[in-house]
Nucleic acid binder design. Structure first.
Lengths: 224, 224
DNA sequence: AGTATATGATAGTATTACTATTAAATTTGT
DNA sequence: ACAAATTTAATAGTAATACTATCATATACT
């Protein structure tokens, strides 16, 4: 992916970190290697101790950036959705026709992720895989309501609202724009998960893409 | 809910347990109170030690029934889907018309759960809430492929296949019956989750049900 | 050169997720 | 009714996790 703008920073809720990891070299290495390690070990087996060892740094130094690994996950997922939102807005903004706009939106959401050179320390492909396999764990907790109030899911929610609005632009009488928008966003991750681990439960594969499926699903729900 | 048959046992993959909890009083109390406790504390904060304390039994005794809490979750979720499959088959079996059959299927899957007196030690309403909030954690693990091979997700997969087949009966030319079936089953849990914790991301509420939404979604995707 | 700040090293705590052993209670077979 | 088998309870112990606290050292800034 080509760099579109020189200096962009994805804005993440400041309460996800104690000290902004973008502000130092160590911080960036923490983020970079946490992505590699969570991808490799899975979030459950990932620990700050292991991360410290892998970057030749100390466990206690990592705690100076993130309170705990849950907050780190909130940081990574927020960053991901912020990055996605940027692509999303950039790709759809200039399209006038509501149907074409929505079609493009579904494509951007559901297509495979490619590397973005603009953020050298973040491997977006691996991060996307983490989102597919771990995102639910960031909100399937007893603290979800508190954390929601504290704004940790704002970007994701804004994405759903954006899609929902686009749906309404195509069909103002459609009764379930929010549910459909959340189904596309969540369902897209789920279809990728199924192709990886339960291929017998999906029609998506190398040839049939989630984009095909969701485009058909959405446009057949709407009166154009 | 009325008891339909005198003696039904939901068959769960035997590797989920060390000793069949249905075979003893202690076993049943373990299952009964694990549902209450997981519902109350969430799966992450739930431990065998706490469970032991709450049923006045010993931690080590619980380990004689379940290897660990992950296996217990696999047991509970398998039981739930087995129970759901039973309702599902019972409700749809006698319907001849493919569209009506599918309509009924979607209804059974997506409607709120009510208590079933047939299984005194299991609170299906709370268990359903556990499924909504914790089911993903049973498969979002690094061991998912091994455990899938070992058959821990068989009943769930069979459910998806059943729905997929019903979709095909209505429209043989529809290209994504498996994806649509998995979307309905997974998406239904997700819509309930959203109504609980992110009501701004769904149109489902007291008056508009997930059944309404998914019925519309499915039948607009198909050519009848 | 002196001071602030970031990082590293070490140690320590409470909890978790078990395993092992032994004792007590209960059930079962005759 | 009694012995044997099985189940459950009680206790102790281990390695790992998720931290917190303290102090030393390195670097950067004025």
């Amino acid at each position: 992916m080509k760099r579109l703008l020189q200096a962009i920073k994805i804005e993440v809720n400041q309460n996800t970190y104690v000290k902004d990891p973008e502000s130092s070299d160590l911080g960036k290495r923490i983020v970079e290697h946490s992505i590699l390690m969570i991808h490799e070990l899975g979030f459950d087996s990932f620990t700050f101790k292991k991360l410290g060892a892998s970057i030749g740094s100390n466990e206690s130094s990592i705690y100076r950036y993130f309170e705990n690994k849950h907050k780190l996950l909130l940081y990574l997922t927020s960053w991901y959705w912020g990055w996605q939102e940027y692509q999303f807005v950039f790709a759809t903004n200039s399209i006038a026709d509501p149907s074409e706009k929505l079609r493009k939106a579904i494509e951007v959401i559901s297509k495979p992720v490619v590397l973005d050179d603009s953020f050298a320390h973040i491997n977006e492909v691996l991060l996307n895989d983490i989102i597919i396999n771990e995102y639910s764990k960031s909100y399937l907790t007893k603290e979800v309501d508190t954390e929601n109030k504290e704004g940790y899911f704002e970007i994701y929610k804004r994405m759903v609202l954006r899609i929902s609005e686009m749906i309404q632009e195509v069909d103002l009488n459609y009764a379930y724009p929010l549910s459909l928008a959340s189904t596309v966003l969540e369902g897209s991750l789920h279809q990728y998960f199924l192709t990886q681990h339960f291929p017998s439960l999906t029609n998506c594969n190398k040839k049939v893409t989630p984009t095909d499926y969701f485009t058909h699903l959405v446009f057949n729900s709407l009166n154009k």
